[in-house]
Design a protein around this nucleic acid. Structure first.
Lengths: 194, 194
DNA sequence: CCGACTGTAAACCGATCGGTTTCCGAAATC
DNA sequence: GATTTCGGAAACCGATCGGTTTACAGTCGG
């Protein structure tokens, strides 16, 4: 099915997709079959299934970030850049087959916060919070640290809602984020106060 | 281990605990062993493991509700009753061994929104939103429907954060809910405008 | 042409999966 | 006291689990 170049890439691709679609309990056999890689190769490329879980999560970090966060070429105001994350999330959910934020879903399934996959999830969730924080600082927010955490919570809350309801979000995430930003004084049309 | 009266109750208790602690992929053998019930009995009390998942979730609904939502004997203002949910969540997380909202976690693990367990999860998540909605109507909020959904999202976002970070929440949920309520005009010390 | 290396296919390991079945002791019914 | 019902213990089913091993095909540099 997957036909990238190296066995390692094929494995990481298949793992990223199947661990998300079927959960981390999917078998190594099915995984290797989907990747077109023998189990022997898998186990000399990765120490264990647990390590593959973590590495596949990490390998998707950049793509997932690019999917949700506006790049530096987007020169809209910080507030718009923040709200854009929720609009993108909305679009991903509306695109169908949404099964939650891969990082949160994996952490929830693994149960063990010390599992290498949980560590990676924690790291990449922090990156979203960091993005919010940078933008909030640009916007001159009073308490960017708290606000960044709150925005991340709204993001994950929206993701949870999408999973539980199995329906599009209808802009509720962006609306909630906007309300919170308004309450914090990060208003529309407001430029950073340099 | 569990020593309630009937095999059915023992099964539902053990299932509620083990499905939460270890995930829905825990084996039926381990489940029955923990409940002190034979598999034969289990399979004549429940059609399948999937049905047991759903029924165990549903059987814990009332207790979970009582754990998080203030009862009718609590005559504080609606705003306080709403914020109290987040304070209780905070306490549950701080109590340790928190693995997320059982309904969201189960829905995330099941992947399939038509699974009987997912249907139950959807139903009980709606009950929390309904609680918020009732209180918001009492408080005279302008748009109780939207606000109730937003509060539920904050709740689930806080739960996700607790799982991913594996740390206490430190009041961030209640603070976010309070900010949102303030922004919506549901202020502290404000009584319902009858 | 040879050996070293890479990678797949597949057998194999003990354990466990969801689910069914058999057996048998304890208790309740008549 | 005989019988029926309940329910636990455990064997059993084919399938799959994570992980290891053997065997073999292709592809290099020498």
């Amino acid at each position: 099915m997957t036909t990238s170049s190296t066995p390692r890439e094929r494995l990481l691709d298949a793992a990223g997709e199947l661990f998300y679609r079927d959960g981390v309990n999917i078998g190594v056999d099915a995984l290797c079959k989907a990747a077109g890689v023998s189990k022997k190769s898998m186990y000399q490329l990765f120490r264990s299934k647990d390590e593959l879980i973590a590495e596949s999560l990490a390998s998707r970090g950049a793509a997932y970030q690019a999917l949700l966060q506006p790049g530096p070429e987007d020169d809209r105001p910080a507030r718009d850049r923040i709200l854009n994350v929720f609009e993108r999330q909305d679009a991903v959910v509306a695109g169908g087959n949404y099964l939650g934020c891969p990082y949160v879903a994996t952490a929830v399934e693994l149960k063990n916060p010390e599992h290498p996959g949980s560590v990676v999830a924690r790291h990449f969730k922090q990156q979203l919070t960091d993005f919010f924080h940078r933008e909030l600082v640009k916007a001159g927010a009073d308490d960017p640290s708290t606000l960044a955490i709150q925005l991340t919570m709204i993001f994950d809350g929206a993701a949870a809602r999408a999973v539980v309801r199995a329906q599009p979000l209808g802009g509720i995430g962006a609306a909630t984020a906007a309300a919170l930003l308004d309450a914090a004084g990060v208003h529309a049309g407001e430029l950073a106060l340099h």
